[in-house]
């Protein structure tokens, strides 16, 4: 096999395809910034997946390109190729190798999933309500005066549990920088756990088709230092109380 006339040219083509693939992976900024622990876990898993899939892609593409070049029939050549019906060893190899890669990925992904599902004791619980076509966020647990905003505020480094309900159709809360997404379903309370780890303002996007205004159903996720966050909680509650506790504070009024 190694001394076959195909080896050298095939290696060359494989190298070329690999170079192009790796360049495509490295030179392009594929993903936006990461702002959560979940996003970091996603990232390592993704690297593994990219490596594994690049490997498969390179092998297939190189063999394909080489075959087209090397095995093209000469003009007027009407003969047949060798009657090669299969090769059990080869077939077992190419079944088992991907199986190993995939199994590794499956185990790893399951671990990540279980880690992501773990609830921290000191987590902050925020209620999310979606309706066509707006988000609202309500703080009720752990605050003296419940209040509601149009943007989501999260403390840096502490887990937030979003308890989400929908009043009409299905929506989906999606923050690309957190690499997290969860449908919000009428009749159900769904939850999302996020450990934000980077201060900043990130888009909240509705990711489930919910009607005419689906494309514009946006809000912001604002990650702040714990101190700022406590300040925000205090300000928001005070605001509600000054307004007689009846009308919730608007998002802009609550911005620190």
């Amino acid at each position: 096999m190694l001394r076959s006339r195909h080896t050298l040219p095939l290696i060359v083509i494989t190298l070329v395809v690999s170079a192009l693939t790796v360049a495509g992976i490295m030179l392009i900024e594929w993903t936006p910034e990461r702002a959560s622990v979940q996003a970091d876990r996603y990232w390592v898993l993704l690297l593994f997946l990219v490596a594994a899939s690049a490997l498969i892609f390179v092998i297939v593409t190189a063999v394909l390109i080489y075959s087209v070049i090397a095995f093209r029939a000469k003009k007027g050549d009407e003969s047949d190729g060798p009657p090669n019906h299969g090769n059990t060893a080869l077939e077992i190899t190419w079944t088992v190798l991907p199986t190993i890669l995939l199994a590794a990925m499956g185990v790893w992904a399951s671990i990540v999933l279980i880690q992501n599902d773990r609830r921290d004791a000191d987590r902050e619980t925020i209620e999310v309500t979606s309706q066509q076509f707006a988000w609202s966020f309500t703080w009720r647990d752990g605050v003296r005066t419940p209040f509601e905003t149009g943007d989501l505020y999260l403390p840096l480094g502490r887990q937030v549990e979003l308890k989400m309900r929908s009043t009409d159709v299905i929506h989906s809360l999606y923050v690309p920088e957190f690499r997290l997404k969860q449908d919000v379903v009428p009749g159900l309370t769904t939850t999302m756990l996020v450990n934000a780890n980077k201060v900043g303002t990130y888009p909240i996007i509705c990711a489930e088709l919910c009607g005419v205004g689906h494309g514009t159903m946006r809000a912001r996720a604002i990650v702040m230092e714990e101190d700022d966050y406590q300040q925000f909680l205090a300000d928001s509650q005070r605001e509600v109380r000054t307004q007689d506790g009846s009308t919730p504070a608007t998002a802009s009024a609550a911005t620190p």
Partner: peptide
């Protein structure tokens, strides 16, 4: 092959959570 590989990305739950929809 590209479509099948991207399918594997989507099959991987933590990746799919980011990429679905």
């Amino acid at each position: 092959v590209i479509g099948g590989l991207s399918g594997v990305y989507l099959a991987t739950v933590p990746i799919d959570i980011a990429l679905t929809d």
